[in-house]
Write a protein that binds this DNA or RNA. Structure first.
Lengths: 233, 233
DNA sequence: TGTCTGACCAATTTTCAAACCTGGTCATAC
DNA sequence: GTATGACCAGGTTTGAAAATTGGTCAGACA
């Protein structure tokens, strides 16, 4: 599928994304010029426009690649252990996954300094990119694990509120427990108590849920890969 | 204690605060001049400076008065029914209390349009003004109602995260259940499950807690009233 | 004598045009 | 066919002048 040319194009694109990502963290979106990125990647400025149509789409690709890396981590974890599909495990893994990726961290926290105007519209999208908000609660419901007393929309609302609240505490100067793992555990505990009523989980139901979540994340990943490929050209 | 003069001064100050508050909601902090406020209050511009030293301290007073009104509502509720002191009841009442007061709502949501630079530093202070963050969890602990497995600091962190998450969903364009009461109930449910482990509450302990909370809020109210009086002159 | 006011001024904010910069193109080199 | 950097239109920054306004206070008023 890859001609030698395509493959070396692909490698070059990766180098450009590396360069852009590194500068993003060092200088922030606002101060970076396309020439900076070209110099950092050791190529000419025009070459970047062989891969992306605009500056903005280049940087969107940087973020999409980060996003894919997080989704891949979640998928690996889900395949290793279906219990990862439980809300409290999912959110714990996603929370730490975002915190460990400086660019996603900056994106989720809408860090104006790093992300400039990219922070605005794109907002918090790391995982919920293209899917309806209640896709995950919908899967829970179908697996007979819906939180009691809440519609799927309400579950999505609750989940979103709690998770975004814990993220908002990651902003500077907010007091919080020292270790990120501890914060993740507290988040997980909260999610479990609020959204996982049943003490016991039927392994049958659980693997059904895990498969659904895997399919959902694969669909998201495919869509992002599509957008990335399109951006590449 | 009030000379006739003091009392009419007080009434005039209230009129000025009314005028400033109304303009704040109509035009936003940035566009309001002191002359606008004076005109709206039907007095001369210099008169405002008989009450406040600076424009900023005038508007801070507007917000402090709103804050006091919320605290008074909480205190009335606590005196009517000590169960109000339970975390899920406290947060439900505070949540709705903020949403029903447009200025506090704008402050908590850091609405740049309405609050201008006031949104920045002052941040979310409606209740937690002058107290250590973990004052309330500390009261819970002393009443033997501490959430299991969490230190007071961690309880404060958890409570803050969840509440601020539900507030952040009050921003425009965030999907959420239609009725504010429903959202408040969902918030209350989450708080209860996460921070109130015990099914039964000893009425003795409860009224002890309620008294502690009342004293705490009275202290906050007194401090705010002090700052207000000082601002008045 | 004490209270209130608006003319006044320093300081900040807004405006606007010139200078500068940079995203994106494309003729040319390889 | 691929890569490049000179080039330019459009956008941004700069800075100085104009306009506004926070805060003062001399005087009007009661």
């Amino acid at each position: 599928m890859d001609t030698p040319t395509d493959s070396s194009r692909g490698r070059r694109a990766e180098r450009i994304l590396d360069a852009a990502g590194e500068l993003l963290l060092r200088w922030g979106y606002r101060r970076i010029t396309i020439e900076d990125v070209a110099r950092q990647a050791g190529i000419g400025k025009g070459t970047i426009y062989l891969h992306w149509k605009t500056r903005e789409s280049l940087f969107r690709s940087v973020l999409m690649r980060e996003d894919l890396s997080l989704i891949d981590e979640l998928l690996a974890e889900l395949r290793r252990d279906p219990r990862t599909a439980l809300p409290h495990r999912m959110m714990r893994t996603a929370f730490l996954g975002v915190l460990r990726r400086p660019l996603l961290r900056a994106l989720v926290l809408a860090d104006e300094d790093v992300m400039g105007r990219l922070a605005q519209d794109q907002g918090t999208r790391p995982i919920e990119g293209a899917l309806p908000d209640d896709a995950y609660p919908e899967l829970l419901r179908r697996a007979g694990m819906a939180p009691p007393g809440l519609t799927s929309e309400e579950s999505a609302y609750t989940l979103g509120a709690i998770v975004s609240g814990f993220f908002s505490r990651e902003r500077d100067e907010q007091p919080r427990p020292e270790r990120a793992e501890r914060r993740a555990d507290i988040l997980a505990g909260a999610i479990r108590r609020v959204l996982e009523p049943g003490r016991e989980v039927d392994p049958e139901r659980l693997s059904e849920l895990a498969e659904g979540v895997i399919r959902m994340l694969e669909r998201v990943a495919a869509q992002i890969r599509g957008e990335l490929a399109q951006a590449y050209e």
